[in-house]
C-alpha cells in the first residue's frame, strides 16, 4: 500500500519560498495570483496493514515539524 503525506506551512507562518514563486509568476506575466504557499509531498511505500496510527506517528515524529507545519495523509490502495 502507498500513502502520500502533504506537508504544508501553518497559516500565519511566513513562506519566503512561496513569496518568491509568487513574484516569479508575476514576472512571467501571470496576473491574478493572490498568494502562493509551497509545501512538500512525501510518498511512502508501506507494508500492507501498516496502521493509521503508525503513519500518523511517522508524520508527527519526523516528516513534519508541527511547530511550523501541518500534515495531511492520503492513503492510496
Amino acid at each position: 500500500m502507498k500513502a502520500r503525506v502533504f506537508v504544508t506551512l501553518k497559516g500565519g507562518v511566513l513562506d519566503p519560498q512561496g513569496k518568491a514563486i509568487h513574484h516569479a509568476l508575476e514576472g512571467l506575466g501571470f496576473s491574478g495570483v493572490n498568494d502562493v504557499r509551497a509545501g512538500k509531498l512525501i510518498e511512502l511505500d508501506l507494508a500492507d496493514g501498516t496502521s493509521d496510527a503508525d503513519i500518523d506517528a511517522m508524520c508527527s515524529k519526523l516528516l513534519a515539524n508541527t511547530v511550523i507545519e501541518n500534515y495531511r495523509i492520503e492513503k492510496i490502495a
Binding site: 507562518v13 519566503p16 519560498q17 513569496k19 515539524n65 511550523i68
Partner: peptide, 10 residues
Amino acid sequence: PGALMRNAGI
C-alpha cells in the same frame, strides 16, 4: 522551543 525557517529574504 520554536523553529528556524528559511531566511525571510531567501
